[in-house]
């Protein structure tokens, strides 16, 4: 389904601020699986997601989606196959435009856009039906600018828009991180419902250990541009938040384990 092979990305190469964000990362994701990517700040988890979304081209390696080599595809072209929800609840929708207009745009994701009227009566009814499922009362406010809605409502709509045309891959970039706890829980639940119902293949970056345990069926842990843990199958069903915390702890310890520690241990170990 999604095959990431040995991608590398260095930001600001050959400068003092050089960041090796991804170092030979390979990841294969099966159709219909829901994968969470967790990691410390600057671990490369968002970079990995952006590499798939096409925000930048990797320095090396390839990305195949649906048996197509999308490595050199520009961002907008990948959107034909990929639905995205961003961390910023304001990033996924056009605030000055109405709910209906926003959704109409997503109804034509990856299709040609002609000179036909965008929001016709029948389209409007279709939108109202789908929006009603969110149980946010938004179906009565289809002509209100999206900018007047709350972050949670906007994120719910972004999620709906990202999955309106069934994407080959759904990318969720910490999509509940900027919301209040109640909205975050609601969006979490909505994500699970949609992914389960539509049997979507999804890749989610998250800060929330609980979310990583609850939603997906596979957890990837990243650190310093590498995948350091890959928990899936039976192992994933057993994993709990403290296990993930312990894994982070191990990573932190390993970081402090430098050559001087090795020398120290060599003298007192045996």
């Amino acid at each position: 389904m999604l095959k990431i092979n040995g991608i590398r990305k260095t930001f600001l190469p050959n400068t003092p601020n050089e960041v090796r964000a991804l170092r030979e990362v390979s990841l294969h994701i099966k159709e219909g699986s829901f994968t969470a990517v967790i990691g410390t700040n600057g671990s490369g988890k968002s970079t990995l997601l952006n590499a798939v979304a096409g925000t930048f081209e990797p320095d090396a390696g390839s990305i195949h989606l649906n048996n197509l080599d999308i490595t050199r595809w520009p961002e907008y072209r990948r959107a034909h196959l990929v639905g995205r929800v961003f961390q910023n609840p304001f990033a996924g929708t056009a605030p000055g435009m109405t709910i209906a207009e926003n959704i109409v745009i997503s109804m034509h994701r990856g299709k040609s856009r002609g000179l036909g009227t965008a929001v016709t009566r029948s389209v409007r009814d279709e939108i109202a039906d789908r929006v009603r499922v969110l149980k946010m009362g938004l179906e009565d406010r289809l002509d209100n600018p999206i900018g007047t809605l709350s972050g949670g409502q906007r994120q719910a709509l972004t999620l709906l828009m990202a999955t309106w045309l069934r994407p080959k891959l759904l990318l969720l970039d910490e999509h509940t991180a900027a919301l209040d706890p109640k909205s975050a829980a609601k969006i979490s639940e909505l994500t699970k419902d949609i992914v389960d119902h539509e049997k979507l293949t999804a890749l989610m970056v998250t800060h929330s250990m609980q979310q990583a345990v609850d939603l997906p069926n596979r957890i990837i842990m990243m650190h310093r541009g590498n995948i350091v843990e890959d928990v899936h199958g039976d192992q994933k069903t057993r994993v709990r938040v403290p296990d993930l915390m312990a894994a982070f702890d191990r990573i932190a310890k390993r970081d402090l384990f430098d050559e001087s520690v090795a020398t120290l241990l060599a003298r007192q170990y045996g």
Binding site: R254, D255, L256, F257, E259, V261, A262, L265, Y269
Partner: peptide, 16 residues
């Protein structure tokens, strides 16, 4: 066994 850097996979140092 105690050679850097592979020792990091064999021993865990408390770090603090």
């Amino acid at each position: 066994f105690l050679a850097w850097p592979d020792v990091r996979d064999r021993l865990s140092f408390c770090g603090e």
